[in-house]
Write a protein that binds this DNA or RNA. Structure first.
Length: 472
RNA sequence: GGCGGGGUAGCCAAGUGGUAAGGCACGGCUCUGCAAAAGCUGCAUUCGUCGGUUCGAUUCCGACCCUCGCCUCCA
């Protein structure tokens, strides 16, 4: 059963086949955060999605090299650095650290490489020189360097691979930025921006004078450095399709580093936006939640991760607090099922039950249809619960079910409690007291004790085998 | 204006040319001292509207309505 993925280039679902002739190595690049502010969970939808892609590829047996850049120099950052009066690195370091903490809270596997733009100025300059040498770029009088879409086209390049633009319809922005007045054509974009007074201390030397890189060039330079001039998968949010990814293709293919007949990127995957009240979650609209906002409200990283992984990545997903509450309930059901399976399985070990693996894999292989995968999982939960309730589940079957769960969860990355936490002595004592009260038929006192336990964060569950404690 | 997504039960969300996954919520039941918790179970003759193709359409085609995104920094 092969993996099929939608490719923004072809606008169709295609069989996934890696560039590697051995069919083993996969290069995956995902546009990462701009560290000028806290990331919100709309941003994290994309990163959780990238994590899902990476994990599923690994589940399928591929050896993935996962790269995610950190944009630590760009217009907004420079503006804030100036306002804060801090050195660039001091300003961005905090946001970068916070970003990776958030990613970890969402149980995203760390990418193998997380290059910073500021650490690759040399590579960007080299790439720009290559573009100049090939006549794809031109120097402006002020020392900026621009990419020429006209020259690129004249050289056989196709501009508009992702967005299917007609050149005449490329509408210039409402205002031409003051530092881009020198462009030959409105659609051309900056590779290198000459230093201006407002940049303060943020500039680097270059063959064209002091300045800083344009936005798009970093991804071309760093992805090709780490993954080669042609690689398999490039992901990002759908808002990056144009102009960022289109320009990345133009720069990277314009430099002509690819082998004959090879593209810069084989598959482009774009994650749809997270919505709030039907509108894109964004800083400018102010309708965003950061991970920290939600953690402060008492939601956990796993609940948020589950929530972000509920809908298909190409569909906009409506994010609500009610939805998070639903995620909590759904996960509690899953936890309960797994806990009971562990009780039945005991120390028994067994290979994974293939039934769940099959339906789960079918779902994800179909363009990462995570909704279908969850459907398979909850169908499985119901079946497990039925046999658990009937008492017909043998320890070996329970162990096989658990082993299957472990495999699918390596893809989903939903942390589950491995065992019931032991309650502290104080709680145990209260529980014992309550049992005594119950045996003495002093139910009023038993209920008081139960409420006391609840207030301390423990639920009492009376079962035929005696009371059980559950956190929260 | 150009380009591209959507409109499926109270909410979220899959899906298919042959008669609607899953989750949450809600109702019923089991268990229980009562509960709680948990489990089981029920819950869309219907898929934005109107036409068309078809033996048959939610799924294909056309028109229309509504909505979102990109075209400017943006996950």
């Amino acid at each position: 059963m092969g993996l099929r993925l939608f490719n923004t280039l072809s606008r169709a679902v295609q069989d996934f086949a890696p560039l590697d002739p051995a069919g083993k190595q996969v290069g995956l690049y995902c546009c990462g955060p701009t560290v000028h502010d806290s990331a919100h969970i709309g941003n994290f939808r994309t990163f959780v999605f990238a994590d899902l892609v990476r994990r599923h590829l690994e589940f399928k047996g591929y050896a993935v090299t996962h790269v995610m850049n950190v944009t630590d120099v760009e217009d907004k950052i420079i503006a804030r650095v100036r306002a804060a009066g801090l050195p660039l690195g001091d300003y961005t370091a905090g946001y970068e650290t916070a970003f990776f903490e958030d990613a970890r809270a969402l149980n995203c596997l760390p990418p193998h490489h997380t290059p910073r733009a500021t650490g690759h100025i040399g590579e960007m300059i080299a790439l720009i020189e290559q573009l100049l040498a090939r006549g794809m770029a031109y120097r402006a009088p002020d020392g900026s360097v621009y990419f020429s879409i006209e020259k690129y086209r004249a050289g056989g390049g196709r501009y508009g691979q992702l967005v299917h633009l007609k050149s005449e319809e490329l509408r210039p922005g409402e205002r031409v930025r003051h530092d881009e007045y020198a462009k030959e054509s409105a659609a051309d974009f900056a590779l290198w921006k000459a230093r201006v007074a407002e940049d303060g201390a943020v500039f680097w030397p270059s063959p064209w004078g002091e300045g800083r890189p344009g936005w798009h060039i970093e991804c071309s330079a760093m992805s090709m450095k780490l993954l080669g001039p042609s690689f398999d998968l490039h992901l990002g949010g759908e808002d990056l399709i144009f102009p960022h990814h289109e320009d990345e293709i133009a720069q990277s293919e314009g430099a002509g580093l690819q082998a004959a007949g090879q593209r810069f990127v084989r598959h482009w995957l774009h994650c749809a936006h997270l919505l709030v009240d039907g509108k894109k979650m964004s800083k400018s609209l102010g309708n965003f939640f950061t991970l920290r906002d939600l953690l402060a409200k008492g939601y956990s990283g796993r609940e948020i991760r589950y929530s972000l992984l509920q809908a298909h990545y190409r569909e906009p997903f409506n994010f609500t607090l009610d939805g998070l509450d639903g995620a909590r309930s759904a996960l509690a059901r899953l936890d309960e099922c797994l806990t009971r399976l562990r009780e039945v399985a005991g120390d028994t070990t067994e290979g994974p039950d293939p039934a769940l693996l099959r339906t789960f894999t079918e779902g994800l292989d179909d363009d990462l249809n995570v909704s279908a995968a969850w459907g398979a999982i909850f169908e499985w939960v119901r079946q497990v619960n039925r046999s658990l309730a009937a008492g017909t589940l043998a320890p070996r079957s329970a162990a096989a079910a658990l082993a299957a769960w472990e495999e699918v969860n390596a893809v989903l990355g939903i942390e589950t409690a491995t065992s019931r936490q032991a309650a502290p002595a104080e709680i145990q004592n209260l529980l014992t007291e309550r049992e005594s009260a119950r045996r003495a038929k002093d139910f009023k006192r038993a209920d008081l004790l139960r409420n006391a336990l609840k207030a301390k964060g423990w639920l009492v569950e009376d079962t035929p085998k005696g009371p059980k404690l559950k956190p929260r």
